[in-house]
């Protein structure tokens, strides 16, 4: 066993160069990394599976057949289904303006796009309560017209849009900047219209980073807890998303059901990580092809 590890570690070319670390140091550093990541990443993933299946597969499946669970899943899909396309259109527009043109105060705009990332989720929810809640600026007007935003589905959708706002724009901007404008300019000179350039030249060239942004945006949209928790009002079967449903089940000591729903969210995040690796691999192999 030790010899196989030794041979694997020694296979790296740097082991023989002047700038490598002694073998023992490598072993300690790799060991430390594995221990830290094992403790913080692998153990929790294993715990989710074990806790969810503690009372057998039947109890696991039953957790999803409950009406409250089904409505939570539906609401999560709805919120993500609205938030992701809207942020996709915004991401494309913002990236087009920022990456393709040189304009005044561009850096300010880039910083403002990042704002939702640095705001605490709880504060993200609170700002909508202050705007649309009964005590808020538009609250009395909304109440008069019988429109409910806070403690209702629109509030959840708004909060989800806010927390996932920067994801797609952030993935697109650097990629579009490094690609430059040459291809688009060539297409224009050859007589393509603006939309033709966008659909036929720009979009195919950014498809992988676009997909990556959508994946990340979707994962966060489905998993958001803090912001949604503030605006939801926790009405069972009505304004509960999957993460909020997990919280309710957990607080009721219904651990098996809580971890069952949690396992669904965890598998979504694992799928996200796999998709991310695939996209990275795909885009780097395409970049190599282009160079060759």
């Amino acid at each position: 066993m030790t010899t196989t590890i030794l041979s694997v570690l020694h296979r790296t070319p740097r082991a023989v160069s002047v700038i490598g670390e002694p073998f023992s140091v490598r072993l300690v550093l790799i060991g430390l990394s594995l221990a830290f990541l094992g403790l913080f990443l692998l153990v929790p993933l294993a715990v989710i599976c074990v806790e969810a299946l503690k009372q057998g597969f039947g109890a696991y499946i039953a957790s999803f057949q409950e009406p409250d669970a089904i409505s939570a899943i539906q609401l999560t899909l709805l919120a993500a289904g609205i938030a992701v396309p809207l942020n996709l259109v915004f991401g494309l527009a913002a990236a087009w303006a920022i990456a393709k043109f040189e304009f005044r105060s561009k850096q300010v705009l880039v910083t403002l796009i990042d704002l939702p990332f640095s705001v605490s989720p709880v504060v993200s929810g609170l700002i909508y309560v202050l705007l649309f809640g009964l005590q808020g600026w538009l609250g009395p007007w909304l109440a008069e017209h019988d429109i409910k935003i806070i403690f209702a589905v629109p509030g959840i959708v708004l909060a989800t849009i806010f927390v996932t706002f920067p994801f797609i724009a952030r993935e697109l901007i650097p990629h579009m900047q490094t690609r430059g404008n040459d291809e688009e300019e060539a297409a224009l000179v050859l007589g393509a219209s603006g939309w033709q350039v966008f659909w036929r030249v720009t979009l195919p060239s950014i498809k992988w980073s676009l997909l990556y942004g959508v994946i990340l945006c979707n994962a966060r949209a489905m998993g958001e807890f803090g912001a949604v928790s503030v605006v939801s009002g926790h009405i069972r079967g009505e304004t509960n998303t999957m993460p909020l449903h997990v919280e309710i089940l957990y607080n009721e000591y219904n651990y098996v059901a809580a971890f069952a729903v949690a396992s669904l969210l965890a598998s979504l995040s694992v799928v996200t990580l796999i998709a991310k690796s695939l996209v990275e691999w795909k885009s780097s192999s395409e970049a190599k092809e282009r160079l060759a």
Binding site: V8, L37, L41, I48, P121, G223, P243, S269, K276
Partner: peptide, 27 residues
């Protein structure tokens, strides 16, 4: 360094980004 399972480990690093916070909390 290169060692067995490195690719998997590299992909797993982003788990805290992808895992919903409530799931991380109860876990």
């Amino acid at each position: 360094y290169s060692f067995p399972g490195k690719k998997l480990l590299d992909a797993l690093i982003d788990l805290p980004f992808a895992l919903p916070t409530a799931v991380a909390g109860i876990t």
